[in-house]
């Protein structure tokens, strides 16, 4: 240990007592520190008593025996361990599940928010409605036009309908439209029109009531009020203006438009939960059951397929329709889940 030889002439007991180097020497002496302080005591013989006293103070204070309590260490630890165990128990029972719930709730909320955002972004602010088999739904559009969706059908449209642009809506399946007339009298603008995109046709109307059915590449358009223009662009392009009471059917696989025998009123009967059988063959009725109610049907009596019926049957559910055809044609219907096998009795 190297020491800067200090000046100790004025040193007293208390000086030594608070001298860092001296304290260190007294408590943790080594050969070097002994050599230093022995040398110092020969240099300052008059300081020996003071050094001695300071050393005694330091040692007395430092070597004070530790207090030993009457009670035991292990006993106290047992208490602490018991306390800790009880606390752990409480944590497990109350706080941790709560923390976990909070954590998962937050995570679920974040995921939900993310999904909503992604959906909004990916659909460009589109709004869509889809019905399940056998269910109807009424949708009020932003312009207060009303669309009634038949089962297994969907529409979508842009959420923001600007007044300067034509209203546009896309349809899959079957729907009945009651379009609100927004044009001012004697003034017609492109922006007042209402477009329905179905299959590869564009239907343009002003204020009208019409039914559109789009199943199996066949699109039936039945106009009840007002006027309607069917437009087909691209190959086989045509334009057809419908008058009230007109019903046309377009086969997109054959690109063929022809007049329907069925009346428009019959085609919209479904909105009143009825099925107007007027002019329908058994095959066509079964198609309705498949398209609107989600059955898959095997007809084991092909000779009956083209038989026709007339009249109106309740159509709130498929059983009503099935009941009628079973009675009328004397059929046997066996059902396995959604699969119906129809044969002659």
């Amino acid at each position: 240990m190297e020491h800067q030889q200090g000046n100790y002439t004025d040193y007293t007991t208390t000086s030594f007592f608070k001298d860092e180097t001296f304290i260190r020497h007294v408590l943790k002496w080594d050969d070097a520190s002994i050599a230093y302080w022995v040398q110092l005591s020969t240099q300052y013989p008059d300081k020996r008593a003071a050094m001695e006293e300071a050393r005694a103070w330091i040692l007395l204070l430092n070597r004070e025996p530790a207090y030993s309590p009457a009670t035991g260490k292990s006993l106290l630890w047992e208490k602490i361990a018991g306390n800790i165990a009880a606390d752990e128990q409480r944590q497990r029972r109350y706080y941790r599940p709560m923390k976990l719930v909070a954590k998962w709730t937050a995570a679920a909320a974040a995921v939900l928010l993310f999904m909503v955002v992604v959906r909004e972004l990916s659909s460009h602010g589109q709004r869509s409605y889809t019905t399940a088999f056998g269910k109807h739904e009424q949708v009020v559009l932003p312009d207060e036009s009303v669309v009634t969706l038949n089962g297994n059908s969907s529409i979508h449209y842009s959420r923001t309908w600007k007044s300067a642009k034509p209203r546009e809506i896309w349809l899959n399946g079957e729907a009945y439209f009651e379009v609100k007339h927004v044009a001012i009298k004697n003034r017609w603008q492109q922006s007042d029109s209402f477009h329905v995109h179905v299959s590869n046709l564009a239907l343009t109307v002003l204020g009208t009531k019409f039914n559109v059915r789009n199943r199996r590449n066949i699109t039936e358009i039945s106009l009840l009020e007002g006027s309607l223009r069917i437009e087909k662009n691209g190959p086989g392009a045509f334009v057809k203006i419908l008058k009230p009471g007109d019903a046309f059917v377009y086969d997109s696989s054959k690109q063929l438009l022809k007049e329907m025998e069925r009346k428009p009123q019959a085609n919209k009967a479904w909105t009143a939960n009825e099925l107007d059988l007027d002019g329908y063959t058994l095959r066509e009725i079964l198609n309705v059951l498949e398209d609107n109610y989600g059955y898959s049907i095997t007809l084991d009596a092909p000779e009956l397929a083209q038989k026709r019926l007339s009249g109106t049957v309740p159509a709130a559910n498929a059983d009503d329709i099935l009941f009628v055809i079973r009675k009328v044609f004397n059929l046997k219907i066996s059902q396995k889940a959604n699969h119906l096998i129809i044969s002659q009795n």
Partner: peptide, 16 residues
């Protein structure tokens, strides 16, 4: 001594 024990117990349970 009991007070010191309580303080020690208090300290270690709180540490945990």
């Amino acid at each position: 001594d009991h007070l010191i024990e309580d303080a020690l117990q208090n300290l270690f349970v709180r540490l945990w």
